[in-house]
Design a protein around this nucleic acid. Sequence first.
RNA 1: GGUCGCGUAGCUCAGUUGGAUAGAGCAUCUGCCUUCUAAGCAGACGGUCAGAGGUUCGAAUCCUCUCGCGAUCACCA
Length: 589
Amino acid sequence: MNVQDILSAQVNEAVKNIFDVDLETVEFQPTRKDFEGDITLVTFPMLRQIKTSPVKLGEAIGQYLVENNKDISKFNVVQGFLNIVLADQFYLDFFGSMKDNTSFGKTPEGEQSIMVEYSSPNTNKPLHLGHVRNNLLGYSVAEILKASGKKVYKTQIINDRGIHICKSMLAWQRFGNDETPETSGLKGDKLVGNYYVKFDKAYKEEVSYLLAQGKTEEEAKAEAPILKDAQEMLRKWEAGDKEVVELWKTMNQWVYNGFEETYQKLGVDFDKNYYESDTYLLGKNVVAEGLEKEVFYRKDDGSVWIDLTADGLDEKIVLRSDGTAVYMTQDIGTAIQRVKDFHINGMVYTVGNEQDYHFKVLFLILKKLGYDWADNLYHLSYGMVDLPTGKMKSREGTVVDADDLIDEMNATARKISEELGKLDGYSAAEKDELYHIIGLGALKYYILKVDPRKRILFNPEESVDFQGNTGPFIQYTYARIQSILRKAEFDYSQPILAYNLNDKEKELIKQLQLYPETILLAAENHSPALIANYTYELVKVFNSFYQNVTILGTEDETEKKFRVQLSKAVGDVIKSSFELLGIQVPERM
RNA sequence: GGUCGCGUAGCUCAGUUGGAUAGAGCAUCUGCCUUCUAAGCAGACGGUCAGAGGUUCGAAUCCUCUCGCGAUCACCA
């Protein structure tokens, strides 16, 4: 039971005793900085039930609380706000209970299990900044859900089939001269991506040739021979043509190797990969079931639809007239398959907001089909990452490549670190590792601190900041704390039972208290941004403490021990919260 | 056109049960390295919370309308 619940009960009691009224609501909020107090009772809403002035009511309740609760040392009333001051002992007790708790803030794993899907790339081109946002969000939300007591499985569905990969394959056959990642020294995904661009170039040339021949644009685009060949290749693939399937396997493997390298650099991972080549036929039997249950209906041409106009949506196709599956069919089938595979009660889909409509429809269909877990599906919908020049487009080469971006961040971290020159005694390898931690920390924090729903405008010219509300700022604070702990060569483990807290210390403990509820809130909202902002607040308060209060230099032994303990606890929470964001923290920087 | 999302300081963003004088960082300007790491601290400057109505003791927050930006409404995925 937290303070608020206890106080709430006591306020009810007070009002019952003094005014003989049963309160409907008791509202608290943190006390504003300009007033003395820790927690504030808002008395306005009570005035509906109690006919008196807000000030008199506040005074009466305050008086009662001070007399009946040992944790409350004093109070003051400003207008309708009863500011309550909690005793130092209350904070010391809390601090004593959390300081050595290595899983402070986290909820033990319970019954609920959930699958988080993220990344889900196509295999015809390398990962770019948009995927980076997706990966960071998905990974972090998975970690946050774990910390809130869920069993979590991370997955990606790899879009390994379709016309797009055939385009790369065809271009490689035509123009590749048997180039491989080994012979070219190129990362596999980059190599395959190059051929996707080459296909597009050749295709455009053919289209303009056909246009010059007098074809309409529509005709030219549909009739370009190279496109026809790619479509033919897809047909062969679907028919299981040996040669095509071999090439497909080879080139996809190059891409997977390349992706794996990028994932490793990014520090994300998956418990299970689903491949579209395995799942694209799933869902057709569900369509048959849905037809029986009359959730779906068949049109004259044989195509199958669902009518969602009563739900404010449109009619949506779930099976083509030729009996083949569409995107929706596949997603229905895959969802059901995953529940079978992992016995999960819910799923989170990390997919851009351009697919809001698709997921709204998908979830609704699954609900109409009668799956009880359909209520626990969540589309983690995030805004696009745009460049100052507009949208990123792979085919036009206006993308920020994930690998390049990571390298640039590392280089910036290196440059700043070298200028500051604080790393005496570190080997070259240790330094490189540190630059990666800092560079990636800057990038991850930059992306995760903003509300997922918002679009991000990324300007490659202006590099990501390393000062202020940034990853490195928080990492730096962590490193400072570790430096103090290294220097504190005495036993500071004994709990401090009595101590007079100063303002900075008290503020720090208050901020530590917020960590558990912040995790729960972040999990509920699927928002790493809440964790990022919480950590930033904590770090700001600590830096103010650090700069204004002597820690190791103080004479008083109790004071010294307490301050070291407090610093350590803050460091532990920084590390813990940054783990939820997938960001590492350095011992020095 | 229908639907969904967004609009807060010059820029990037917080502001989640409606609460007190709307907060940070960057940028600009002042101070602070002889004491635990200055990627820091202390401070100044900066606001029509897109606009207009409404609900309420009280609205950046809830409702309605308007404007702006984006997405989406494919037998593509």
